[in-house]
Write a protein that binds this DNA or RNA. Structure first.
Length: 872
RNA sequence: GGUCGUUUAGCGCAGCUGGUAGCGCAUCCGCUUGACGUGCGGGAGGUCACAGGUUCAAGUCCUGUAACGACCACCA
């Protein structure tokens, strides 16, 4: 590659080319190397219907950071990608598309529908994968999987049959959540509750014997058609006498009993509840306890059935109006009250869910939940941050059976076969040719499984299970699962219990939870608000590295973050800064051959920067171990910009311009530190770091497979760190003074430094000229200079004779002000030191630090007083 | 109703195992300093929501209060 870089970094010239380079090098491919430690992440499979959004961008950035870092550390690293068939979402999309053509599912039948669905998958399913590639994701694309592919299907069948045989999957008539729009059952987890304004209709149900009536209230008067009882609390004195009596259901004029059940709250409303077992989960339970008939009054699309001719075919809300009208006409309506209540809606289409009694397949959860709870309690799986374990336990401990059958075609078809003759149910991985009991003809269950049933197996089904593949042996259990807190119940919990049951152990060691990405105003990004930001547009404008850097910065585990264009702009600037630092180094290297080792002779500033770099290596690695990616990236930013660019490069220029061996040494240190920085930054900004690394002197094919830096005790130089800090303090103080006095940098002045650290400052002359506008420089233990600006630091007294520029009165005022400030500091420290408890109880190091501070302050006060005195 | 989170400079956020508060953006002053104006140097700006407590010492630990937010929950 050419050693010439553009003045500004342009990601568009770099990213696609670099990505292709990685693909060609097969660096993402995991080789199943025996005996090597592994690091594995399985991707949360995005829906094939999906387009890349900021949530994906964040999730995949975090995963790629971890994966790239571990790969560089030498692990046999596998990031396994794939997509989810997303039963409801995909089926809905295809049905919608067919609607535009004027056809329905029933028109074309199951087979033709599935053909369309697969075609759709071929066409659009790869879209999101291409988008993940734009992010720089280093997934092992050779191992890409799909929840509905052959292998996953095999795993699903295996698990279904095993659970069925163990009695952990059963079929039963239960009340379930039904979406009248998607026309399928959904699980409890898939119901989203929304506060909705509604009404309370107070009604009268007369006694059959004419002895008055019972008053009750309902939020859903239309369900009255299916009432089969009225309930009161058995302890309720008011209603003791009416238990067992019969009331007449208004409008329908059916006779229904008054039953007693604990479920009824005496303090709420009138203490009387109408019971509709077919349309309310609680009422269903009451119905079971009292042997009440279950009367379904609605069709699958929530219209009133033909059993009620007056309302037949009406939508549930139309029927509500009509029924209220009729109730009023009949004198059964007492009053209407405004009321706001929680209404369950479908998480896909937000249609109000209709509880409905039907025959469905369920997973018996209690026996599965126990080991799953133990798995996290024992620490085999840890949540980061830990607080989400509480959420997990709460859910697992109160879990109900999981409804897994869906009245959809796109998905894993339930492997249950029913005999048309004897009704025998056969569950098997392969379809039986006839009923094993009577030899009759069998028909497969038409339903498919909940999408989450297959994704629950993802950590092992993707590695080849139920077959004993080398991949499964080598990479399972996986190490880290990265996902948002919004998906813990749907997915994480189900993977844990599935893995405990099927694999006998945890699916992953750590669940790394992140929050959601919000817009600049803190609002959730949503289609309806239209406030979503397209990651691809951001990449187009600022580059993938800038986007990744933004998402990683300021991201603390489990917390939501706000996203704004300005933040990405700042990240882009950082990328540009890095780019220019490398450009500077390359310009100086020119065509020279540079040895890629550190020189034996290191200057003060070399030792200083190497020592800080060495600490950085340790800290960044530690932060990554602890999943503190935001902190790690902040440290890199600070070091690169403040330490390396603003100080070290400026200092290095001195020797570079001097030439010769000195310049050579400086170049070697520059290349060494720059290379290290690039490696540390590579997981966060893979493209630009690769591009720069390739242009610098390097060994190996790619930075992404180079070795992650390790802490080196030979590079620890505490003495030089202190010395440089003293000099930098002096330089900052001089700059500060000059800025205050409005002296242009071009106006140079001689600098005298009176200090006890003559050795240290003896090395600082050239730095002062370069960075503090010094025309000349002298160091001594003390100076006696008239008419100069004086500056006092903790280590030195600095004189800058600037003749006519010096305003003695202003100078005196400034020094006096500073003197007061230092006196206050001293007082603060002295107060501490005169506190016997502090001296006795605080650690010695802390006390000593305070004593040293006190001494410094005292010294500074003496110097300031001396200066003021000299001004007369 | 329960659980959890947030509350730190104008805005957005960091602050790990307690030791006289930091970053980015914005703002103000200055700078054609041959890597970068997507830049350089410098400045201003905070009683760390409130009230107690533990401690020699609390933004940092404990208790409570308030506001906002999230999740869970069968009050018809």
């Amino acid at each position: 590659m050419a050693k010439e870089l553009a003045k500004q970094y342009d990601p568009k010239n770099v990213e696609d080319r670099i990505y292709d380079f990685w693909l060609n090098g097969k660096y993402f491919h995991a080789k199943v190397e025996e005996g090597k430690p592994t690091y594995t992440i399985v991707i949360p499979p995005p829906n094939i219907t999906g387009q890349l959004h900021m949530g994906h961008a964040l999730d995949n950035t975090l995963q790629d950071i971890l994966i790239r870092w571990r790969r560089m550390q030498g692990y046999d690293t596998l990031w396994l990608p794939g997509t989810d068939h997303a039963s409801i979402a995909t089926e809905a999309k295809i049905v919608e598309a067919m609607k535009a053509e004027g056809i329905t599912k029933d028109d074309i039948g199951r087979e033709a529908f599935l053909e369309r669905a697969w075609k759709w998958k071929e066409q659009y399913g790869g879209r999101i994968i291409q988008q993940l590639k734009k992010m720089g994701s280093s997934c092992d694309w050779d191992r890409e999987r799909f929840t509905l592919d052959e292998g996953c299907n095999k795993a699903v069948l295996e698990v279904f049959c095993r659970l069925y045989e163990k009695g952990l999957i059963y079929r039963g008539e239960r009340i379930i959540n039904w979406c009248p729009k998607c026309l399928t059952s959904i699980s409890d987890a898939e119901v989203e509750y929304e506060d909705q304004a509604g009404h309370f209709w107070h009604l009268r149900y007369p006694f059959k014997d004419g002895s008055g009536y019972l008053e009750l209230a309902t939020t859903r008067p239309e369900t009255l058609l299916g009432d089969t009882a009225v309930a009161v609390n058995p302890e309720d004195e008011r209603y003791k006498d009416v238990i067992g009596k019969t009331v007449i259901l208004p409008i329908v004029h059916r006779e229904i009993p008054v039953v007693a059940d604990d479920y009824v709250e005496m303090d709420f409303g009138t203490g009387v509840v109408k019971i509709t077992p077919a349309h309310d989960p609680n009422d269903f339970e009451v119905g079971l306890r009292h042997n009440l008939p279950v009367i379904n009054v609605m069709t699958d699309d929530a219209k009133i059935t033909g059993d009620y001719p007056a309302y037949a075919g009406m939508d549930r809300y139309e029927a509500r109006k009509a029924i209220v009208r009729d109730l009023e006409a009949e004198g059964a309506l007492v009053r209407i009250e405004d009321y706001s209540h929680n209404v369950g809606t479908c998480y896909r289409c937000h249609t109000t869910v209709e509880p409905r009694v039907s025959k469905q397949w369920f997973v018996k959860m209690e026996p599965l939940a126990k080991p799953a709870i133990e798995c996290v309690k024992s620490g085999k799986t840890k949540f980061v941050p830990e607080r989400f374990e509480k959420t997990y336990f709460h859910w697992m401990e109160n879990i109900k059976d999981w409804c897994i059958s869906r009245q959809l075609w796109w998905g894993h078809r339930i492997p249950a076969y029913y005999c048309e003759d004897c009704g025998e149910v056969t569950v098997a991985k392969t379809a039986p040719s006839c009923c094993p009991k009577c030899g009759g003809k069998v028909e497969q269950d038409p339903d498919t499984l909940d999408t989450w049933f297959s994704s629950a197996l993802w950590p092992f089904s993707t590695l080849g299970w139920p077959d004993e593949t080398p991949e499964l042996k080598h990479y399972f259990p996986t190490n880290t699962l990265v996902t948002g807190y919004d998906i813990i119940f749907f997915w994480v919990a189900r993977m844990i219990f599935s893995s405990c049951e099927q694999m006998g152990r945890e699916p992953f060691g750590t669940v790394f939870i992140h929050g959601i990405v919000r817009d600049a105003l803190g609002r959730k990004m949503s289609k309806s608000l239209g406030n979503g930001i397209d990651p691809l547009e951001i990449i187009d404008k600022y580059g993938a590295d800038a986007l990744r850097f933004t998402l990683a910065t300021g991201n603390s585990p489990g917390n939501d973050m706000r996203f704004s264009d300005e933040k990405v702009g700042a990240s882009r600037n950082f990328a540009n800064k890095l780019w220019n630092a490398s450009r500077f180094i390359l310009m100086n290297i020119g065509d020279d051959e540079i040895e890629q080792t550190l020189p034996s002779e290191l200057a003060l500033e070399d030792k200083w920067v190497l020592s800080l770099y060495n600490d950085l290596v340790k800290e960044v690695t530690d932060n990554l171990e602890k999943f503190e990616l935001g902190i790690a990236v902040q440290k890199l930013y600070d070091f690169i910009w403040d330490i390396f660019c603003d100080w070290y490069i400026e200092l290095a220029k001195i020797r570079l311009q001097a030439g010769g061996e000195e310049a050579d040494n400086a170049k070697r240190v520059l290349v060494y530190v720059m290379t290290g920085i690039l490696k540390l930054l590579h997981p966060f900004m893979p493209f630009i770091t690769e591009e720069i690394w390739q242009t610098l002197p390097h060994e190996g094919e790619s930075i992404m497979i180079s070795a992650w830096p390790v802490y080196d005790s030979a590079l620890s130089f505490p003495k030089e760190e202190t010395e440089m800090e003293r000099i930098m303090t002096a330089i900052r103080a001089i700059r500060n003074r000059r800025a205050e006095m409005n002296v242009a940098p071009s106006k140079k002045a001689k600098v005298y430094i009176a200090t006890a650290y003559t050795d240290t400052f003896g090395k600082a002359g050239i730095f002062m000229q370069r960075l503090a506008s010094a025309s000349g420089f002298e160091v001594g233990e003390s100076f006696d200079i008239e008419g100069s600006v004086s500056i006092v630091t903790a280590d030195a007294k600095i004189y800058i004779p600037m003749g006519d520029l010096v305003d003695f009165e202003a100078e005196k005022a400034r020094l006096s002000k500073e003197l007061e400030a230092v006196k206050k500091d001293l007082e603060f420290v002295n107060n501490k030191l005169s506190n016997e408890n502090f001296v006795a109880k605080a650690p010695e190091a802390v006390v000593n630090a305070q004593r040293e501070a006190a001494a410094k302050y005292a010294e500074k006060i003496a110097l300031l007083e001396d200066s003021i005195a000299k001004l007369g």
